[in-house]
Design a protein around this nucleic acid. Structure first.
Lengths: 273, 273
DNA sequence: TCCAACTATGACCCAGCGTCAAGGTCAAGA
DNA sequence: TCTTGACCTTGACGCTGGGTCATAGTTGGA
């Protein structure tokens, strides 16, 4: 008669595994000797090897019993099932490999290549790194919500950044990214933004109407902007004085505002569902 | 400010996952409102999306923090590491697929094709199914211990089974597989076995010396034989009377026997290590 | 005011064992 | 005979990535 460690070593498994199989009901508990030790016969070795053979072939322990008892057809069906699971797991890892290599290639997480290209273009033009990070985070949010619309928006953004007047305006916004709310340059900047919007109002409105974004996302993006840009609240106030409201989706102020940027009460961010 | 479910749905994860990331220290706990509810800002959404992006690429959570903080080089190194792990997991599943398909092809678990062929040959010759099962179990044990020697032994067995006199002897052993220990045919069978051994002694000894098997394995195989063959003990006794000892490795009885077949005291099966 | 939907914490669950912990047993050497 | 080291026993926690209750407090709209 064999002790548990002899049994285990004959079958090439650990003692712990044998006990585990007992606990799972895969291997019958043998009789005990007078001191309570398990004592096995040769048949137990054969059974344990059969269990291991299945387990080593990727059969989950929960199905081992079924397969040990199965005849040809059931066995084949179960094997087909397990093989399908294995293929699924392989495909999953392969997708993971693709994704992770893309992450390693791009310099920024969770962004499509077009967006990374846009951020690089901003660097080319000498935008401040802080502002680029704010942009990056905005696009992470957008890509997470409406990934299919990102290319269209990126096309607009690329056009905008190549537009000299607009680019200078952006650059100047970037220069004030860390300024205090009472910075004297803010009102002048607000004037320029308002002037530009007046000049390009029709054009901008048309572009924005093309792809409507949900209010939720706009509110989230505005909130992100305000949080990472200390004097943003002040700038938005100045713009409101000049008849414009919002930032992500800036538009002429209407008589009654339905939501406000920087609103921290939660009203501006209803459940997106 | 966002509630946890709003945060979760913006990032496309479950509330439970968010709390799990808090518990793991991946996502900073936000401030609470007066009722103890977590309140998030837009930056938390970005951070959560970054975490999900990594997790969705197969990065284990335990490494996510490291990768979020990593610069280009460290990131690349970590990615290479993770990719290697993924490849290993893929290879493992592929091996599993191979093994399991082999199991589905062969009619018996844990046996190499040569052994399956031998068992089929036994069926051709009309051996009893019980005896075939005993053979199968023996070969499972052998294949588990010394897989590399199985083909050599199988060659011997194939030769033996094609040898008519020997085959008839085996067949008659098989016919007595379920007999009682006092069956009158047993002594006659023992005589025939002894006679055959006398005649083929030199030959058999030479064949067995070729590939020595460990005493442990021989004892295990003999024990398996005795357990599944009720009158085996009696048959072995009769053979001992005729000057032969053992079964798996049957040989002339020596003046002092170092181990005995069917010995249930454990002495015959020392730790194989 | 009530109810549905949310939030909080805590705990158990899955696989397949590895790894202590704490104590009992056994065989052999001094 | 005592000791020592190698076994044996059960029980419990750990890992991964959360899912799924359970119980209780909160919120918001009708």
């Amino acid at each position: 008669m064999l002790t548990i460690s002899q049994l285990a070593s004959y079958a090439g498994v650990t003692v712990r595994a044998v006990r585990h199989y007992h606990a799972k009901g895969l291997l019958a508990e043998p009789k005990r000797d007078r001191s309570g030790y398990r004592r096995y016969d040769a048949a137990a070795v054969v059974e344990l090897i059969r269990i291991r053979t299945l387990a080593d072939a990727g059969v989950p322990l929960s199905r081992v019993r079924e397969l040990l008892a199965a005849g040809g057809e059931e066995f084949a069906a179960a094997v087909a099932d397990i093989d399908q699971r294995l293929r699924g797991e392989i495909r999953e890892r392969q997708r993971h490999r693709e994704r992770i290599s893309q992450l390693a290639a791009g310099d920024s997480l969770a962004l499509p290549p077009v967006a990374v290209a846009y951020l690089d273009r901003m660097r080319d033009f000498g935008f401040r790194e802080r502002l680029i990070e704010i942009e990056r985070d905005s696009w992470i949010l957008i890509a997470a919500q409406i990934p299919e619309q990102v290319p269209a928006f990126m096309a607009i953004k690329h056009a905008q950044i190549e537009h000299e007047t607009l680019r200078r305006l952006y650059l100047d916004v970037g220069d004030l990214v860390d300024c205090a709310p009472d910075d004297p340059r803010l009102p002048a900047l607000a004037d320029r933004v308002a002037d530009f919007l007046e000049a390009a109002a029709a054009e901008a409105a048309a572009a924005e109407e093309q792809q409507p974004i949900s209010d939720d996302l706009i509110a989230l993006l505005d909130a992100a902007f305000v949080q990472s840009f200390p004097c943003a609240t002040r700038l938005l106030e100045l713009l409101e004085e000049r008849g414009w409201t919002g930032w992500t989706n800036i538009r002429r102020k209407e008589p009654e505002a339905r939501w406000r940027i920087g609103d921290r009460t939660g009203k501006g961010l209803p459940d997106p569902h």
